[in-house]
Nucleic acid binder design. Structure first.
Lengths: 339, 339
DNA sequence: GTGAAAGCGCTAACAA
DNA sequence: TTGTTAGCGCTTTCAC
């Protein structure tokens, strides 16, 4: 940088100012500096800048697993939003484990990232305290539970599951299986989506039949959807509808149903959750709940960026934000056409 | 760190040595230092360490798109391998664009990452020069083209596609469509897999029928697989087999075939490529080529780590490595059972 | 095995 | 609008 300064006939600080976008610089000066940068092929040492400024321009993204289309697609949208704001992203897959999630929460302390976008899947409500006063900006993705002292960008889990269940009830289905139940008491989507299911039944005076609950404790993968569906059918209970807690589970459940000769949607109607790309190309195309993923990514990155800027200016953080994206049901072929 | 040193009754340098794993330290000293670290809740400032040492312990991963299961699953395996070596990973989706890929290649110059794992999809053979002498360690993922001056960790694209095609030919199929052709002259999988297809046909004295080529220039997504399959069928050509250049395309093609009343594998046999998780749960389950993804991820990270360590010791880089993972065909239900 | 001194390249704070 | 000074927290170098 000293070389660039010498060549442009200015001080190092002016070069620094130009490269940092400091506005009060005479255009002619800026030009000379940029010309010198070009001629010398200079590239700023980001490490030194980070060290001195105490900021890195890097944020962490902790999600369970990128191989799951929902999280992969979410990560793409978050990375795009971050890029638009000149933020880099370090991704930490937590593998649905408590240790993975705790490790991700510790990471920013070491100052490699300025803040964290965190999609919890293994922490439970009792862990709320772990998320408070971390000393860095944290934005939670996807859930509405935990602490009200933390920024959240979430989806309408309860309403989405309830709308999905209502769609089946409206079609006259009364024996609706749930695919994706978890025994772990995580404060996660499973709990909320099950609540939506329960509420929809209760509103029509229906009770939950335990035999209709399909458990998928090993993860919301397609294979576990097929297995859970099989478990439900093995009980001998009659099934005319399925609400799956995500699209992968739904696609697995459809596979199992079709293998056993059930026609979809005639014999069994199926609704998923997430609107991943695959849902459009299954056979039949899957009816699902779009939880507003794009909006979640955009809003979360913007919010974290805002928090980082405020922290850099030394401001006290404002009140925690709760942003809830709008959901909508996308009707395709796996549910009967409404008349 | 000074506080820790004071508390432990040693110098800062000794604390640094302990925390950096320097071996020649008396156990009693180490213990005292670690105790002081614990008591004070000290966390090393990674930024300062990076700055001073000139290394960051972060590597870049440039892939086209995480929402594609192949890349999402690959990213998960790379992140796991990196974590095992205490490396952080900054992910840059390139969006299948030349600009995205060039931007990813520039990133390490700014010193935020020490090296780069790069899965090219838009660069062409003429760009080979861009990959040489970058001034940082680069490991290419997935292709065998470009420069022989660069480390590659690749898969048997040609052999895989040839084996897939042979499987159909062995089953007596003679009118085999290809799904996933690209017009762009990228040095990518499309070119190599098409070569494998061509070779397999040629070995039996068969020529390529242009009507059987399904183009998917907008990306190897499921939807484009369905569209490309439709395009082929619209030509009126007879089709009794399909080789798709990835599993998503294959699943899309199967959808289109089934919509049009073709039975799989009776009327049309289908083979994919990549062995993504979904391939196991499609209906029928998809026969596919496992390109050795796990091995690729492990080997690539280990190689890059080796290069980084050598660079840190000031050694000249050794000769470029070419590692080719073993592929194998996984036969499922979408191809006729071998008799 | 451990310590003292120096300095990495940049930007905060302030001065001009 | 630009320059000067100081120093971020660690590791390198080299001495002991």
């Amino acid at each position: 940088m000293a070389d660039v300064a010498a060549r442009a006939g200015v001080s190092a600080k002016t070069v620094s100012n130009v490269l940092s976008g400091y506005p009060y610089i005479r255009p002619s000066t800026r030009e000379r500096v940029l010309a010198a940068v070009d001629e010398l092929g200079y590239e700023i040492n980001v490490t030194a800048r980070n060290f001195r400024s105490g900021r890195t321009g890097v944020v962490g993204l902790a999600v369970p697993e990128l191989g799951q289309p929902y999280f992969g697609e979410l990560a793409d949208e978050i990375l795009a939003a971050a890029r638009a704001r000149d933020l880099q992203v370090v991704v930490s897959p937590t593998g649905f484990t408590r240790e993975g999630e705790l490790a991700a929460l510790r990471e920013p302390r070491r100052r490699l990232v300025d803040g964290l976008l965190f999609s919890p899947a293994a922490l439970v409500q009792d862990d709320a305290g772990l998320l408070e006063d971390l000393g860095y900006p944290l934005v939670l993705l996807g859930e509405q539970m935990f602490s009200d002292k933390v920024d959240h960008v979430t989806m309408r889990n309860v309403e989405g599951a309830r709308a999905a269940t209502d769609l089946l009830l409206d079609a006259g289905r009364r024996s609706i299986a749930v695919i994706g139940m978890l025994h772990a008491p995580t404060a996660g989507s499973a709990t909320l989506r099950f609540r939506g299911y329960t509420e929809a039944l209760a509103a029509r005076g229906l009770a939950v039949d335990e035999r209709l609950l399909g458990w998928a404790d090993d993860g919301w993968h397609r294979g576990n959807g097929a297995r859970a569906m099989a478990d439900v059918l093995e009980t001998g209970v009659e099934v005319d509808g399925v609400v799956a807690f995500n699209d992968a589970l739904a696609l697995g459940a459809m596979y199992e149903l079709q293998v056993r000769g059930r026609a979809i949607p005639r014999d069994v109607a199926v609704v998923g959750f997430d609107d991943i790309e695959d849902a459009r190309y299954s056979r039949p195309a899957l009816t699902t709940v779009d939880p507003g993923r794009r909006d979640i990514a955009e809003y979360a990155v913007a919010l974290l960026d805002r928090r980082l800027a405020a922290a850099a200016r030394g401001e006290a953080p404002g009140a925690p934000v709760l942003h809830v994206a709008d959901m909508r049901v996308i009707e395709r072929e796996s549910t009967p056409r409404r008349s």
